[in-house]
Simulated scan of single mutants.
Amino acid sequence: MIDIGDKAPDFTLPASRDRTIALSDASGPVVLFFYPRDDTPGCTKEAIAFTGMEADFAALGVTIWGISADSVASHEKFATKHGLTMPLLSDEDNAICEAFGVWKEKNMYGKKFMGIERATFLIAADGTLAQVWRKVKVPGHAENVLEAAKALQA
């Protein structure tokens, strides 16, 4: 499992707004948040929180990207419905989720299945992991990530 100080796995993924995004193309720090599914309550609250703070992150030179296993078409609907402005990347084969260690066995109502563990990675401009949040609880999370991004600037 990757952790703080490790080099973030590079990737190129299709994204909403008819884009293809590669980590290696980032010109500064990146917040990469992995979420289980488009348009579910927790994922919606998290994405809206990051969207609401996007200007604060941009002022620090930090880019925000969300990743789930949903299709680009699903991401487009989700973004339009909730006014999400950051790109949502599609990892339909879960290769990037596995590389970041967020593809996990989950248990809901006694049924086990594989899915994405909600996690966020703050990647420094040099491509190393500056901060990692696993098993994220949504309330206050975007604010915590912004504080960590500010600390990168210090």
Rank of each mutant, 00 (worst) to 15 (best):
50 F>E: 07
91 D>K: 00
12 T>A: 08
138 V>A: 00
44 T>W: 04
152 L>G: 08
91 D>V: 00
134 R>E: 15
140 G>D: 08
40 T>K: 09
75 H>D: 09
39 D>A: 13
92 E>P: 09
61 G>K: 09
139 P>D: 05
28 G>D: 02
113 F>S: 15
56 D>F: 10
92 E>I: 06
84 L>N: 02
115 G>P: 06
98 E>S: 09
35 Y>L: 02
99 A>Y: 01
132 V>H: 10
98 E>R: 14
113 F>L: 10
83 G>A: 14
129 L>N: 08
49 A>K: 07
118 R>H: 07
80 T>S: 15
109 Y>T: 00
93 D>R: 11
114 M>Q: 15
77 K>A: 12
94 N>V: 03
48 I>R: 03
61 G>H: 05
40 T>L: 05
10 D>R: 06
78 F>H: 09
76 E>H: 04
107 N>S: 11
80 T>D: 15
29 P>M: 12
145 V>E: 10
22 A>F: 11
118 R>Q: 04
116 I>D: 11
129 L>Y: 04
49 A>S: 12
85 T>P: 00
79 A>N: 04
74 S>Y: 09
130 A>S: 14
68 S>R: 02
99 A>K: 03
108 M>G: 06
43 C>M: 09
18 D>L: 14
57 F>P: 01
17 R>W: 08
4 I>V: 15
124 A>K: 06
97 C>Y: 02
138 V>E: 00
131 Q>N: 14
133 W>S: 07
118 R>E: 04
106 K>G: 03
109 Y>W: 03
6 D>L: 04
148 A>G: 13
16 S>M: 06
154 A>Y: 12
145 V>K: 08
141 H>R: 07
63 T>N: 06
56 D>L: 12
148 A>T: 03
136 V>I: 06
130 A>M: 12
65 W>A: 02
54 E>L: 12
145 V>T: 12
101 G>N: 10
95 A>H: 02
95 A>V: 00
21 I>D: 03
21 I>T: 04
29 P>K: 13
35 Y>I: 01
57 F>W: 08
20 T>Q: 13
10 D>I: 10
38 D>N: 15
36 P>T: 02
43 C>L: 02
20 T>I: 07
84 L>Q: 07
66 G>L: 05
9 P>G: 10
30 V>W: 02
22 A>K: 15
122 L>D: 01
55 A>I: 08
56 D>C: 13
72 V>W: 14
153 Q>A: 15
17 R>Y: 13
63 T>L: 10
83 G>R: 08
117 E>R: 08
33 F>Y: 11
74 S>D: 14
119 A>G: 07
21 I>W: 07
132 V>K: 10
10 D>Q: 07
108 M>H: 11
81 K>F: 10
51 T>G: 09
90 S>K: 02
49 A>T: 05
73 A>Q: 12
103 W>Y: 13
103 W>V: 01
25 D>L: 14
9 P>K: 03
73 A>F: 05
1 M>P: 09
93 D>I: 03
24 S>H: 13
94 N>Y: 08
81 K>D: 08
148 A>H: 07
42 G>A: 06
148 A>L: 13
44 T>F: 01
128 T>Y: 01
3 D>R: 04
11 F>Q: 02
137 K>W: 01
124 A>F: 13
47 A>N: 11
110 G>T: 01
50 F>S: 03
91 D>R: 00
132 V>D: 12
77 K>F: 05
3 D>C: 05
129 L>C: 12
10 D>N: 14
